[in-house]
C-alpha cells in the first residue's frame, strides 16, 4: 500500500499539472507550456512565505495564488494574446517558462529548498500503508479540483461558455460570449491554481528551479494518456504515470521508471489514439 500511496501522490502532482494544461486547452485550444513553471514559482513563493517571511499558512496560500495569478496574467498579455496562431503560442509560452526558470535560479539559486507543510511531518499508517499527510492532501486536492471543474463546466453558465468556446469560438462570440475575456480569465485561474498547487506540491518535490521542466514533461504525458481536454482523463493519466513510475522504480530499478512511463504512453496511444478519456473532435465542413 505504501507504494500505491507514493504512486498516487506523485501521480496527483502530474495530474495537477495536466489540469492546468487542460484549463487553457479547453478555453483556447492552445497549450500553456509554462504551466509547470508557474507551479514551480508557486512552490518558491510558498517557501518564501513560510521560511523567509514566516507568514501563517493561510497567508502563504493567498500570497502564492495571487503572485502566480499575476504572473500568468502577464504571460497571457505578452506571450499569448499578441500571437495569432496556436503553434506559435507553443513557442512563446515555452519561452516564458524558460524565463521563469531563469528568474527562479537568479532569485532562489539552484539548490532545492524544503517547503514546510502545515500538517503533521510524520507519516501515518492507513490501510496497511505508510503515507504523509501532505501526500493525502495532494491526492484529495487533485480529485476535488477535477470534480469541481466538472460541475462548473456543466452547471454554471460561464462554465458552459468555456466548453462552447473550445468547440467553436466564433459561434460562442455570436451568443454574446466575450471570448477574449474568458480566455484571459482561464489563464488567470490556472495561475491562481498553480499558486495553490505550488503550496501543496512543494513539500513533496521541494522548490527547485528545474522542477518546472521535470513536471512539464510528465504532466504532458499524463494529459496524453488521459486524453486532451478531459479533466477526468488528466486525473487518470496522472495517477497512471505516478503508479507506473513508482512501481517500475521499485521492482525494475530507477533507471526503468521513465522508460516504463513512456512504454505505457505508447501502449495507450496505440490502443486509443485520443487517450483514455479523449474524444475525436468532429468538425462540420
Amino acid at each position: 500500500m505504501t507504494l500505491i500511496y507514493a504512486g498516487l501522490s506523485l501521480g496527483a502532482v502530474y495530474a495537477l499539472v495536466a489540469i492546468g494544461y487542460n484549463i487553457v486547452f479547453v478555453a483556447s485550444r492552445s497549450f500553456n507550456f509554462a504551466q509547470a513553471q508557474l507551479m514551480m514559482i508557486g512552490a518558491f513563493v510558498a517557501y518564501a512565505g513560510h521560511v523567509t517571511f514566516g507568514l501563517p499558512a493561510v497567508a502563504v496560500i493567498v500570497l502564492a495564488m495571487v503572485v502566480v495569478m499575476v504572473i500568468a496574467a502577464i504571460e497571457e498579455r505578452i506571450a499569448v494574446r499578441p500571437v495569432a496562431d496556436h503553434q506559435t503560442q507553443l513557442i512563446t509560452t515555452l519561452g516564458f517558462g524558460t524565463v521563469l526558470t531563469g528568474l527562479a535560479q537568479l532569485i532562489w539559486g539552484t539548490q532545492p529548498l524544503e517547503v514546510p507543510f502545515i500538517g503533521s511531518k510524520e507519516a501515518i499508517t492507513l490501510a496497511g500503508g505508510r503515507v504523509y499527510t501532505f501526500e493525502i492532501g495532494l491526492i484529495v486536492m487533485a480529485v476535488v479540483l477535477v470534480v469541481g471543474i466538472h460541475l462548473y463546466t456543466r452547471r454554471r453558465l460561464n462554465g458552459l461558455a468555456v466548453v462552447a468556446m473550445s468547440q467553436d469560438a466564433e459561434a460562442a462570440v455570436l451568443r454574446g460570449v466575450n471570448v477574449r475575456m474568458l480566455a484571459f480569465s482561464a489563464f488567470a485561474v490556472t495561475g491562481l491554481l498553480a499558486g495553490l498547487m505550488g503550496f501543496f506540491i512543494g513539500p513533496k518535490t521541494f522548490a527547485v528551479a528545474t522542477l518546472g521542466s521535470a513536471l512539464a514533461l510528465k504532466g504532458f504525458v499524463a494529459l496524453a494518456i488521459g486524453g486532451f481536454g478531459s479533466f477526468y482523463g488528466g486525473l487518470a493519466g496522472g495517477f497512471t504515470v505516478g503508479l507506473v513510475e513508482e512501481h517500475a522504480a521499485r521492482y525494475l530499478g530507477s533507471e526503468f521508471s521513465n522508460l516504463s512511463v513512456f512504454a505505457i504512453l505508447l501502449l495507450v496511444l496505440m490502443i486509443r489514439p485520443t487517450g483514455l478519456f479523449g474524444k475525436v473532435q468532429e468538425r462540420m465542413v
Binding site: L157, L160, A164, Q167, A171, L174, R175, V177, E282, M284
Partner: peptide, 18 residues
C-alpha cells in the same frame, strides 16, 4: 453551427448568455 458536444438544453441556455 451548434455546439455539437453539448446538449440541446445547454445550447439553448448558452443562447441566453448575453
Amino acid at each position: 453551427r451548434v455546439f455539437r458536444e453539448q446538449t440541446v438544453q445547454e445550447n439553448l441556455l448558452l443562447g441566453g448568455y448575453s
